[in-house]
Structures are given as C-alpha cells and as structure tokens.
C-alpha cells in the first residue's frame, strides 16, 4: 500500500471516515460507530499507514492534539492506543496486546507515544498474535487512537450476559475507583453487581476490597496509589449509576446484534464508553476474576 501522507492523516471520531476499519483501525472505527449510541471521549485516529516520521504528518498529529486539549473543559491528558485492524473484531477481543499509553500530555509526548504504539504494533509479540489468530494485514504502520483521558471517578467493565450465569438471565458489572487499568489488569478486587436483564433489578451487590487505584499523574502518565481504608468499604457506583451502566450495555448488545462486554468510566456523573467488544469464549473464562483474570490477559 502507498505511504499515506497524501491521504488525510487525522480522522476525528465524529467523522464518517473514522467508521472505516481500513482507515481508522478496529478500535477507533468501532468507537466511531458507537458514538451515536453512547458518550465516547472525544478523540481522533491517526490513519493506518501514516508515517509520523514525516514532518508534515507529525505536525498534523500535534495540531490535532492541540485542538483536542483546547476544547472546553478538556483535561491535558490523552490516552494513546493501538487501533490495529485485527483488534476489537469478533475474532480477537483482547486489548493490551499492544502498547497503550495513558495520561500523555503535550504535543511532543503525544507524537512520541503514537510512534511507540506503531513500533509495538510491528513488534514480534504482535506479529505472533496476528499469525496465530488472524492473517497479518501487512507491514504498514498501524492506525492509532488518540482520545481524551477520562480521569475516572469509577472504572467499569460490564458484560451484557453474565459469563458466570450461562442461562443469560443476568448481566454483570464490575467497578472500581479510578482509571480502568487496575480493573483490566485484575490487580484489584472490584465491586461486583449482578443485574437481572429483564427489569434491571440488582440481584447481588458485593463490595470489593479495591486496595489500590490508578490516577493520572501530574508529572505524566499514571500512578497507582492506595485506596484510603475508609473509602474502600464503600461501593464505587450508586444504584442509579448501576442502572445506567446496565441500560448502556443492553443497548449496545442490541445495536451490535450479539452479547458485548464494555469498558466504561464515570466522570463528573457522565458515563463514557471506552471500549465495546463481542463476548467471546475467552472473555467468559477470563471473567472468573482475580489473579486468573490477569494471567489470561497478559
């Protein structure tokens, strides 16, 4: 494929073109399509094939970051993630295979993160993954998603069908304080809610120990800090928030036409959708929770 610098480099999530996986990659195109159904943190895709070592391309990325960071009530941080084509498709639901940079701020740092994500997408680890699960899509730079980082009050993983309840009777919501890293990595015991799909009745609510939380670090990146003992004993979501998450995950299941698991975050009482994937067999087994969860993912 041709070097892409003659084509547009930046595709905002709100743009039509961003919904195309061949341009924006799997993750960004999926989010762009879902933006009509859920609040998605604003951001843009750096198109697949964009060579950021070219000064003109680099300037476009930096310019887009400045625009993102200067929007009203913006935070300076962004999350820079791989949007490689193989991801977020029905065949492969794991994120974290490729580099993710959270809490990046400043145009130079963002450019550096984009470069690093592309490099890691091309790395041997990623190559092995593609060989085993899906044919490689060539050697051109992967699409990269740059999104405003939501400094979450609570991070959420939700399954439209509770993987532990194969009868499909209920959905499951896991939540903890701070950014979702600790939840996804399985490094904390989250609060767990079991919600009946039919009427959204909360069948079970279990307060997890939480232990630690991940927050943006003013010096760059994120940091893991203890959850204060007096806060760890409280649920990280209110009843109303649990209902809101349940409604969202059911709506997305309907839109997608298959059971989904999502990553989401509450910030200033707004529910943001961060990721939406089909539930796979792998997802079911990894949802057993705790340390095994982490093993399965990394």
């Amino acid at each position: 494929m041709d070097p892409a610098h003659s084509c547009p480099v930046i595709h905002w999530l709100t743009e039509e073109a961003c919904q195309r996986p061949d341009i924006a990659g799997g993750k960004a195109s999926a989010l762009a399509r879902l933006a009509r159904h859920a609040q998605v943190p604003p951001g843009f895709a750096v198109a697949a094939g964009a060579d950021v070592s070219l000064p003109a391309v680099a300037r476009e990325v930096q310019h887009a970051y400045h625009r993102l960071a200067s929007e009203p009530d913006a935070t300076p941080w962004v999350a820079v993630r791989s949007s490689a084509a193989g991801e977020d498709g029905a065949a492969a639901s794991f994120a974290g295979q490729l580099d993710t940079h959270l809490g990046v701020s400043g145009a130079d740092a963002v450019l550096e993160a984009v470069r690093a994500v592309q490099a890691s997408a091309a790395s041997a680890r990623a190559a092995v993954y593609r060989q085993t699960h899906q044919p490689a899509s060539g050697s051109m730079p992967a699409a990269v998603l740059v999104q405003r980082l939501i400094p979450a009050d609570a991070a959420i993983v939700a399954f439209s069908r509770d993987p532990m309840q194969p009868d499909g009777y209920s959905l499951a919501i896991h939540a903890t304080l701070g950014l979702g890293e600790s939840l996804v990595a399985g490094s904390v015991t989250p609060d767990r809610f079991t919600v009946r799909r039919r009427d959204l009745a909360v069948l079970a609510a279990e307060c997890g120990g939480k232990g630690s939380m991940v927050v943006p670090d003013r010096r760059g990146g994120t940091k893991t800090v203890p959850v204060p003992r007096s806060v760890a004993g409280q649920f990280s979501l209110t009843e109303a928030q649990v209902a809101e998450v349940a409604q969202l995950v059911l709506r997305l299941e309907q839109v997608q036409g298959h059971p989904v698991d999502i990553e989401a975050a509450f910030w200033q009482d707004i529910l943001y959708l961060l990721q939406c994937r089909p539930i796979t067999t792998a997802a079911v087994s990894r949802s057993a929770g705790g340390a095994e969860h982490r093993e399965a993912r990394s």
């Binding site: 304080l177 939380m213 806060v231």
Partner: peptide, 10 residues
C-alpha cells in the same frame, strides 16, 4: 484534584 470524586468527597 484528579482523584476519583469519592476520594475527594471523603
């Protein structure tokens, strides 16, 4: 400032 609201409230 960037901690979860539950922590700031506490």
């Amino acid at each position: 400032a960037d901690y979860p609201a539950a922590v700031r409230t506490a």
